[in-house]
Design a protein around this nucleic acid. Structure first.
Length: 644
DNA sequence: GTAGGGTTAG
């Protein structure tokens, strides 16, 4: 290690003579601009002395075209210099330059572990997880692929961007590839658990793994764990971790306190929250805005509105109520507690005080009014927000959209959709469901269908209750094929559907004569369909379905466990008699029936015998029928004994 | 000068 520092030391001591001549002959050399700095460096010994490499770095940082500058200075720059440049563009959030510099480094094979780590970090900040995965995937050298800081940074990038599934999948891959995770890895992964559905269980898995590897939990890990407990409502567990943190000699900070306090707010445990506040004050920490706001949440959620109002006054006095958040907490709790009038008063008070709303308070109030049935008032508020604001996010757009939909203000609905488009805000499942309900109410079925299709294509889970209703309405309105498409979209969007859905679609398909489609529904879900629906379908199919499928349909029906009715067989036989060229199908049906213990009833038998010459198989048919009769008599006796 | 976390609102 000693030796490694020597080459660095040498150029530094040599650099003044090396740059000095350039002062006397200023040309277009990259070093020229550094000359005055050299003088400065002499005057103030504390500043770094310039060197060709440092100057080159400064040049690239200042260049309008960093790639051109890099190319010009290629011979001077080393990988660590490029890393400095890379970080520079990341720090000043020039994502385009960042990527160009990185690409240049890739092309010139000037990448090391640090380059990847930094680049992934900034890709995380610039919300470009896809690029990070792409670059990570392109790393050939396995030792770099599983280098702990490269892994940590790419995992961090995915977590920051909410790509939790990919995070854990990639982590498993890294482990298989030989990664030795450290505390950084675990805190990164744990932070991914905060918003995960089964986040607490996943966190426990990670904690076990961490312990198994002999790593010691630190204050950061505890902080993340507390947040996980709070967001998943594991209040007692949060208390245990908080105590363990103290027992292991760490001093909890305001984040630890606020997470535990937040856990208490979910359960409205205000006594414990007050004890915790006492503990916080005694530990010389000063409660900040977040702590007090979280305490306000405790009181509000617990319905302690008087205490909440007092605290809000305190927040105002401390200058902690300059944004709308504390008001939002209390307004929301009041409204949800049935005090819509008081909520409105507080909302107005907030506006009068000139507290700026980014839309949160508006969306809370619009929703609250809407819930309470004040639809016109909700719409007025949505309009008021529109008049005062140009910035929107998805939630306020969704809230306003619903207010307009429910007051049948088509023009405003369209305006909201246009805004969404212009602002490049992607609709979510709430948007889609609002629109579906709206179009449905207006019986604009082509738009209902288009919206559902759009929602499905964009990968949103369809709302089963709503879509079943839509499906029925489409059927009633004379769009059975569209109803079937809705059924299929629901069916194939992974989640298991309610078993009555299949019957519902059958009740549309069968009367509409879409019998082949109905057959497919039955074949795939035979055991979930009631005998009544099976019978209806069976009769209809035998009467007017594709004759070539009759035998297959019989098998599917039988497979459902339903005993096929005599009526069904009777109609099938009538169909076959009308089409003597389907003789083989008839014979195979009769054979199959025998094997399954079915037999035709007397009227069908007579009909068959009477028409047997049509098939030219009089003898054979008679034989089959008598065999069938014998078999069914035997099994009939068995059945009788059982039912007795 | 490679990488980590956590708190409040719809």
């Amino acid at each position: 290690m000693e030796a490694a520092s020597l080459p660095l030391a040498a150029p530094r001591s040599l650099s003044p003579p090396a740059t000095a001549p350039s002062c006397s002959r200023p040309k277009n050399l990259p070093f020229v601009r550094a000359a005055p700095q050299t003088l400065e460096a002499r005057a103030a010994p504390k500043t770094q002395r310039p060197s060709p490499r440092r100057n080159a770095v400064a040049d690239v940082k200042a260049a309008a075209d960093p790639v051109a500058a890099l190319t010009r200075l290629e011979d001077v720059l080393q990988t660590q210099d490029c890393n400095i440049i890379l970080r520079h563009y990341g720090d000043i959030r020039k994502w385009d330059a960042l990527s160009k510099v990185f690409r240049w480094m890739q092309e010139h094979e000037m990448l090391n572990v640090a380059s990847y780590s930094s680049y992934f970090k900034y890709l995380g900040l610039s919300r470009n997880a896809a690029r990070a995965l792409q670059v990570y995937g392109s790393i050939q050298d396995q030792s770099i692929r599983v280098h702990v800081s490269v892994c940590n940074s790419v995992l961090g990038c995915l977590v920051k961007n909410g790509r939790y599934d990919s995070t854990f999948k990639l982590y498993d891959e890294m482990i298989r590839g030989g990664l030795s995770p450290d505390l950084f890895t675990y805190s990164t992964l744990l932070s991914g658990c905060i918003k995960l559905k089964q986040g607490y269980a996943k966190a426990m898995e990670l904690i076990n793994e961490l312990n198994y590897r002999g790593l010691q939990m630190d204050s950061v890990i505890y902080g993340t764990l507390l947040a996980i407990c709070a967001s998943h409502n594991y209040c007692e567990e949060a208390e245990v971790y908080f105590q363990k943190l103290k027992d292991e000699g760490h001093n909890p900070n305001l984040f630890h306190y606020s997470s535990l306090l937040n856990a208490y707010s979910e359960n409205s445990n205000y006594e414990k929250a007050e004890l915790l506040m006492k503990d916080l004050r005694s530990s010389k920490l000063i409660p900040n805005k977040v702590i007090l706001t979280t305490l306000l949440k405790v009181y509000s959620k617990g319905g302690l509105f008087e205490k909440a109002k007092e605290l809000l006054t305190e927040l105002e006095a401390s200058g902690f109520a300059q944004d709308e958040m504390p008001y939002c907490i209390l307004i929301d709790a009041l409204a949800k507690g049935g005090k819509i009038w008081e909520a409105t008063m507080l909302f107005n008070e907030m506006k009068e005080k000139g507290v700026k709303s980014d839309g949160y308070a508006f969306s809370i109030m619009i929703s609250a009014l809407h819930r309470a049935g004040y639809r016109e008032e909700a719409k007025q508020l949505a309009k008021e927000f529109e008049d005062q604001n140009t910035t929107y996010d998805l939630v306020i757009l969704n809230t306003s959209l619903r207010a307009y939909c429910n007051t049948n203000d088509t023009e405003s609905v369209m305006r909201m959709l246009k805004k969404m488009d212009e602002l490049n805000i992607s609709p979510d499942h709430i948007t889609f469901n609002t629109l579906i309900r709206y179009f449905c109410k207006g019986k604009v079925y082509h738009l209902v269908y288009k919206t559902i299709e759009d929602m499905h294509t964009k990968g949103h889970q369809l709302n089963e209750e709503l879509c079943s209703e839509v499906m029925l309405q489409l059927g009633e309105a004379g769009f059975p094929s569209e109803a079937l498409s809705v059924y299929n979209m629901m069916r194939y969007s992974k989640r298991t559907v309610c078993k009555s859905l299949h019957e519902k679609v059958l009740s549309i398909l069968v009367p509409a004569g879409l019998l082949k489609d109905a057959y497919i529904v039955i074949k795939d879900n035979a055991e979930l369909i009631s005998p009544r629906s099976l019978e209806k379908f069976a009769i209809q199919f035998m009467t007017s379905g594709n004759i070539n499928l009759i035998n297959d349909v019989m098998k599917a029906l039988n497979h459902s466990g339903w005993r096929i009715s005599q009526d069904t067989f009777g109609r099938a036989i009538q169909r076959y008699i009308q089409k003597p060229d389907k003789k083989q199908l008839l014979l195979s049906l009769l054979d199959w029936m025998t094997g399954q213990g079915y037999s035709v009833d007397s009227s069908s038998r007579n009909l068959l015998l009477k028409n047997a010459q049509l098939f030219g198989e009089k003898q054979l048919i008679a034989e089959i029928l008598s065999k069938q009769q014998a078999a069914s008599r035997a099994s009939g006796q068995r059945t009788k004994r059982i039912s007795d």
